[in-house]
Every structure is written in structure tokens, then in C-alpha cells.
Design a protein around this nucleic acid. Structure first.
Lengths: 218, 218
DNA sequence: TCAAAAGTGTTTATCGTACACCCATGC
DNA sequence: GCATGGGTGTACGATAAACACTTTTGA
């Protein structure tokens, strides 16, 4: 009947949507047991901080950026999730506020974007964490404006439609989709067009409010 | 830059729906700093168990029963949430599988059911926890059969309607509600009626499947 | 001139909503 | 016999779904 005093940790799924597919930012581990393996960026929680502070610090360390939307997803506590010591880790997800290139700080050897559906098996229980994050994202497509956080600040309506189609696993009618989205006051045209495609240029839009809103969409 | 090694804990919101209102099971604390205050049942996580094991053990200790639906809600980690020591606690909620009287084991002096809207301020950060639980319940009314878990095994359609009306904070049309619910294959009549009311007896129903299902209702 | 994606309205079907009266029981 | 909650159907309006062609650009 001895209470455990585990390490507390956080792991962070950082997501964006590119080319009609969800991407996650993964770090290459350098510690001996997992050298070369990929994992979500994570850190132990320090004596002086709470979970959310640790997550924000970890985000800065992994990306050299500081603004994002953060959300707690789930706490993982299986006995053997880290074979070397008892660690209870809370998974968060993050959606960067801008689409810039990340340059991880010295703590990490390298970070790279991976298509979620194409990522190799991850270290620890991070496959489970990644799965819970993607399920949460898919669920939230139904009743929030999370899709707008997955896209860069300027996007086309086809980009947005791709997020929903990918999340729902089904195709949507283009005219009905646009009618719906435009009637909801969640996006507005920025008056520019996307150049350089080998087709007719698409009008660019931005989110009216860059927050997660509770608005039923579909 | 010293990693924290906090105690890990769980706290458990146990809920049921009675007389058109949500109830939560609260324990009276006996420890010095909080003597006489009410709190959710909670326990430290032991060296030999993960969070869900601790929650199930805690449920047995608090109720002397063992079957319920459990769901992780949120992990609370504020520095001063327990003034006496660093504790990171994961809140779960539970819905008993039957409606029996609880008799807490010796660990607890007493446990009592309280109407959520009528509960006194709780110890620690348990008011926050309770709020997150009730918000989660309200949210899940929209896309799961959680309402069926809040009711006893036999209930009337008016009971069920009360759950939704309370959760949504609005009244629903009786005929439309019944039409909808009965068309969904989630409840079936058990052929008995509720006796003893000072009015026409109501037909009793049971859940077709006593699980949380993802089914959009309203 | 061809390929590739953007953009645009109308019609139909489905679903949600509004609405009022009789019934069975206990007191 | 009266008060209390139980139980039932239809008509209308709103929303969702189906559906095809023209436009603009780069190669």
C-alpha cells in the first residue's frame, strides 16, 4: 500500500493540415534505449510549474515558437509505459498559430513533420497518444471550428473542405459545403488569390476569429 | 530545473439522476485541514497500479460496489491545489450500473448524495473538478447515450426527457421527444409500469445496450 | 487547346417543430 | 369527481441533399 511518486511528464502532439492530410511534428530521440526512434516532443514537469506551463515550455523548446492553441487530451499511466522508471504523462495537442518553419532548440537533435497516416511506429506509448489526439480532432470537427486552427492563416475553401473530408472519411458536395460555411460567419475572404497552381487561382480566406468556437457544423 | 516527483492521485465524480436533477456522491473529510468539508472520493495512486486501477479501487472503497462506467475527465496540476504537498490528480467520472444504496467502507466516515446545483463548496479544487464533470456530461448528451447511464435500469420516458431538459437547460416537446427516442432503437419497454404515483402509471423502459454509444440525438 | 481546379443555383426530400386533447390512477 | 402526470398524430416550415456546367489559369 505504498503511494507512488512518479515523474510527471507531458507529451505534445503538434498538428497541421497540408495537402489534404494531417501532419504531426515528431522528434528523433537521442537517449540510448530509443536512439533514432521518433516520438512526440515531451518533457518532465519541473518542481516550479504545472502541466500547462510544462507544455508551453516544451512547445518553445521543440519549435522555438511560443504561440499556439493547447488542449489537454488524456493522461497515460500504464506501469510499463516507460520501462526505465515510473512516469505518468499527460498528452496535450497544439495547433500553431502561424505556419512557419520550426527550428528546435538544442534540447532536440531534430524535429520533422510527418503525415499521420504515414508515420513509423513511435517510441513509448506515443502511438496510443497520437491515436487519441487524432480521434479528438475528428470528434471536434463536428462541433467546433477546430478545422480553422489546423490550416495556415490564409487558406482556400477547398483546403477547408479537405480537412472535413479527411476527418469524416467521406467526400462532401462542393456547393453545399461552401453554402454552409459561408452562411456561418466563421471565414472571410482576404481579397487575394493563391497563385502558382496549374489551374484557376482560388480565393484565399481567413478565420474571422482565431479561436476554437463551439459551433455545430455538420 | 529539478523535475517534480509529485504524488499521483485520482478523484472521482459519481453521478446519478434523480427527481429531474443531477446528483453527485460526496464524502466528508476527516483530515485535520479539512475536517467536516465535503469532497469527491479520491485516493493516491499506489506503486502497483495505474490510474484506472486506482479509480476502480477508490470506487469500491467509497461505495462497496464494483461495477460502473468510468471515464477520465481531466488532470489537475495547479501548484497549490493541495497546500500540504504536491499532488497531481486526474479526475474521473463514474456512472453506477445499478441504483443501490452505497455503504462506504471504513476508509470513509460517510458518503452522501447531493444535488449538484445545491452542493456546498468542496475541498481542494473539487469544485472545478465537479464543474468539468458536469460540463462533460452536458456535452455528451448531444452525441452519446450517456443519459441512459445516469438513470436506473428501469426508467420512464419522462425520466429520460428530464435528463435532456436539465442538461440542455430548456424544455422539450413531449411528443417530439418520444417520437425521436423510440425511433432510435436505444430503449425498449420492459412491460411493467411504475406504480404508486398519484397519476396514471408510466410504462417502464430499459436501455437496449447498457454502454455509452456514439449516437447523435439532438 | 488541353488539363486542372475554381466557382456558382435550383429543386427535391427529409427532418424538425409546433400544437391539444383524452386516459388512467390515487386521493 | 378532481388533480396529476401519461400517452398519442398531423400539418407546416426549415434545412440538408442531390445535381452539371462554365471559368480561369499554366503548360
Amino acid at each position: 500500500m505504498i503511494p507512488t511518486k512518479p515523474y510527471a511528464a507531458t507529451d505534445l502532439g503538434i498538428f497541421k493540415f497540408v495537402d489534404g492530410k494531417l501532419m504531426v511534428y515528431l522528434m528523433e530521440l537521442t537517449i540510448e534505449a530509443y536512439v533514432g526512434r521518433l516520438a512526440l516532443p515531451g518533457t518532465l514537469v519541473l518542481e516550479t510549474e504545472d502541466l500547462e506551463s510544462a507544455v508551453r515550455r516544451n512547445y518553445r523548446e521543440a519549435t522555438n515558437r511560443s504561440n499556439a492553441y493547447f488542449e489537454q487530451v488524456y493522461t497515460f499511466s500504464a506501469m510499463e509505459r516507460d520501462p526505465s522508471r515510473r512516469v505518468i504523462s499527460t498528452a496535450y495537442m497544439a495547433f500553431p498559430d502561424k505556419d512557419e518553419t520550426f527550428t528546435p532548440s538544442s534540447k532536440y537533435s531534430s524535429g520533422t513533420w510527418h503525415y499521420v497516416n504515414d508515420a513509423p511506429p513511435l517510441a513509448y506509448d506515443h502511438d496510443q497518444m497520437l491515436k487519441m489526439c487524432t480521434e479528438r480532432i475528428a470528434a471536434k470537427l463536428n462541433y467546433t471550428t477546430i478545422a480553422l486552427l489546423l490550416l495556415p492563416p490564409a487558406f482556400t475553401l477547398t483546403d477547408l473542405q479537405n480537412v472535413y473530408e479527411q476527418g469524416f472519411g467521406e467526400t462532401l458536395d462542393k456547393r453545399n459545403f461552401r453554402k454552409k460555411v459561408l452562411s456561418m460567419d466563421i471565414v472571410e475572404p482576404i481579397g487575394r488569390q493563391r497563385q502558382g497552381e496549374q489551374a484557376r487561382p482560388a480565393m484565399l480566406y481567413k478565420a474571422v476569429r482565431r479561436e476554437m468556437e463551439m459551433i455545430p457544423l455538420f
